[in-house]
Structure formats: C-alpha cells, structure tokens
Design a protein around this nucleic acid. Sequence first.
DNA 1: ATAATATACTTAGCGTCACTAATTATATTG
DNA 2: CAATATAATTAGTGACGCTAAGTATATTAT
Lengths: 108, 108
Amino acid sequence: MSFDKELLRGTLELMVLHLIDTGDTYGYALTSRISELSEGRIDLKEGTLYPVLYRLENESMIESSWSTPERGVPRKYYRITEKGRARLSELRQEWHAFVECVKRVLRG
Amino acid sequence: MSFDKELLRGTLELMVLHLIDTGDTYGYALTSRISELSEGRIDLKEGTLYPVLYRLENESMIESSWSTPERGVPRKYYRITEKGRARLSELRQEWHAFVECVKRVLRG
DNA sequence: ATAATATACTTAGCGTCACTAATTATATTG
DNA sequence: CAATATAATTAGTGACGCTAAGTATATTAT
C-alpha cells in the first residue's frame, strides 16, 4: 500500500523542512501531518522522523525548544533558521529539476 | 552540479528497466544514454549501474547474452522479460503516485 | 485507585544501495 | 608499441530509512 522506502530518501528532509517552515511544530505532529497530506501513503515511524530532526538541528537548519501545553505531555517545538530556509530553497529546486530529469529519461 | 545521490534511490531501477524496455542495450551504453537524456545531470558510474543490472537479472527482470560487435570489445546485451515489464509498469505507477504525494505535502 | 490507552520523545542496531576505486581485457589510434 | 577508448567486474564504505524497544507523562475507563 505504501511506497518503497528508497523513494523517501532525499525528499524526507525537503518535506520536513517545508512543513516546519510553514509553521513551528513538533515531531509527533509532523508524522500525522505528512500522513494526512499524503492520504496515508507516507507513514513515517518515529525511528525515521526523529533522526531527521536531530540531523537538521545538528546542521543548524532548525532550532528547538521544549514547551508544555495546557493539556498533554511536553513537546519539543522546532522552528526553521535562516540557514534552513536557504537549504529548503535549494532542496526544492533540486527536487523539481530531478523530477524533470526522470521525466525526460522516461520519455527517451 | 549533479543531484544528491539519495534522490537516485528508488528511481534508478525504473529508469534502467525503461531504457532496456525501449530496446535491447548494454551497460556502457546505458550510462551514456542516461547522461544524454538528463543533460549530464545524472552521471552513473560503472560501480553504480552494473550492480543494478545484476540485481535485475538475478530477479529475472532482465536477461543477458554476450555479443561481439563487428568492431570493438564484447558487450553484454540485456533484454527485458515479461516479469520485468510487469515490474516496470508497477514502478512507473509508484513513481508518479509518489511525485503527486510530495507535491501535496509541499503545498500543505 | 489503578489499569489501559494516547501522546511524545529517544536510541541501538540492521539492511539496502549508490558510491569510490581498483582491476581486467580487448580494440583502436597515434 | 604506447596510449586511449570501450566494456565489464567486484570489494569495500557510508548514508539513512527502517524495526524495535524503551522512557515518561496525561487522560480515560474500570
């Protein structure tokens, strides 16, 4: 039902950075958001998403801070940095160019 | 200049199977064909392409036979099998569905 | 109260696969 | 005959999405 995991490689960072860019959010919410937007076709497990977030934070693409909501358990909120926005723009361009390339190969 | 290698994952098989489907061919020619069609953006090294071909042959998606051209060194020609054609059709669908998903996420 | 469930984050270890790099071999060209 | 182009093979590396298990708090059900 779901996609070959290899396909996710290279686009996961793009999607995560984009969603963080559209509004500060936290890990658990990102998995549901991606699942929702992809109509259940992309079902990220925690073991997949969190390492992506740590990588991005480690490279200063995003920053985090703990926050406890009125109800519920503490959450680690992420926001994108300037560096992250630049990277996002690059990744977006790269993705579109790549899709174009594959399209050309599949026509040839 | 070239794409992040992670992007190639998941689409390499698709592109290779497609090109073999459009006409019997051999490894070395595939790299130049893909480079040409992608305007140099996808530059497969032998160490990348040949293992793909061996995998595909091992799974009976393609078949090979040696053939010596009138001029030049012997080549290993590949042709697609019925099983390979079925797989190609699946991969093509999966790819298009995935691109759609990413598009939706990047809009959300 | 307490057990059960939902939310939320962490982390160790695995397998796949594109990569680098080196090797072998024949054919053609200078 | 050396140098280059063509063509295939293969050993080893690293990135990263995955499984799976764990920690911890909050809410709901019994």
